[in-house]
Amino acid sequence: MATIKDVAAIAGVSFTTVSHVVNNSRPVSAEVRVKVERAIRELDYVPSAVARSLKARNTLTIGLLVPNATNPYFAELARGVEDGCAKNGYCMFFCNSDDDPAKQRSYLRVLQEKRIDGLVIASAGEDAVLAQSLAGAREPLVILDRNIEGVSADLVQIDHEKGGYLATRHLLQLGHSRVACITGPIATAVSAMRVHGFIRAMAERGIEIEPHAIQQGAFSATGGYEAASQLFDTLKPTGIFACNDMMGVGALRAAAERGINVPRDCSIIGFDDIELSRYTYPALSTVGQSVRELGELAAQTLIDRIAGKVPASTRRRVVTPHMILRESTGVVPQERLGEVSQKH
């Protein structure tokens, strides 16, 4: 592989002159520039990005750390961050922690060794050690989706509580009163906020939440399938709020296996509006915001912070969710209304 000294030898100039041409760091004559550029083409010379970053004190790269790359939500989120980087001339290092706090901390060290200019991180959950690592980070940070207690950084997230409220209220407005909720791991702040929205909507209508109506899943299709199966075999709800779309997909499968028609026998609504939710059968109603746009917003927030375009104090950017109504929700049939009234 050609070096800067090889280019200098062919062009008949010093290697510092080649550096000035490559980096536009000092003026050189047109004649010298032509010689250097011809030598670069002849040798197919590629300047060292590391060396250039040491001079410029930046690498034009950011890191993205997500907890589960197999989850379409985080895949779409990553694409949004990448799009935001590309629009600003940045590249992105992508790391997946597999919901493993130890792996998450290891990747954090790797990214910092790569001399990234900043980091977008979607946490794998509560982790005091990770919080300590991030608290001492020199790079600008943006926390995405799940807040990390004890870390002072810009935060970009959707209004989880309001989204849970809107989804549940939609089911109630359709006449459902035997409504259940499938939540993710209840210890995570995201789950707690979405469930709180469910509880607030039910309380607002004066409807008592039945025993075992809140079932815990795993923010996955399998988790939604298992939780919905339990609900269909015991509570027999007419409406289900699944706290993310993947659990909603699992709930659709559990309903189909039991011959439960959605939405005639049971309405199901998810959360996030991932692309897959458009193509289930029936298409899944959901609440959320464009996941890719959320990722772009996180990238832009970080790049603005790197460039010093924002106040020194950290920012909390909360995106308002909205309803996306499709085929999986509908009014309660008259025969189910009678059944529900007897129950209550």
Rank of each mutant, 00 (worst) to 15 (best):
A2W: 00
A2M: 01
I4C: 07
A8C: 08
V13M: 11
V22R: 15
N23S: 11
N24H: 15
N24V: 12
S25W: 09
P27Q: 05
R38H: 12
E42P: 02
L65W: 08
V66I: 14
A69M: 13
T70F: 04
A75N: 01
R79T: 15
D83R: 09
A86K: 15
A86R: 15
Y90A: 05
C91V: 11
N96Y: 06
D100M: 12
P101Y: 10
Q112Y: 02
R115N: 14
I121F: 02
S123F: 10
E126N: 10
E126C: 05
D127Y: 11
S133V: 00
L134A: 08
I143F: 04
R146T: 00
D154H: 12
D159C: 12
K162H: 01
K162G: 05
G164F: 13
Y165H: 04
L166H: 03
L172T: 04
S191P: 08
V195Y: 04
M202W: 11
E204Y: 02
P211H: 08
F232C: 11
L235R: 00
N244C: 04
D245I: 00
G250R: 03
A251W: 04
R253N: 06
E257M: 02
R264E: 15
I268W: 05
I269C: 04
I274E: 03
I274Q: 04
L276C: 01
L294H: 01
A307F: 08
P311C: 08
P311H: 13
A312C: 07
R315S: 10
R317Q: 10
H322N: 04
V331T: 10
P333G: 04
Q334D: 12
E339V: 15
H344I: 09
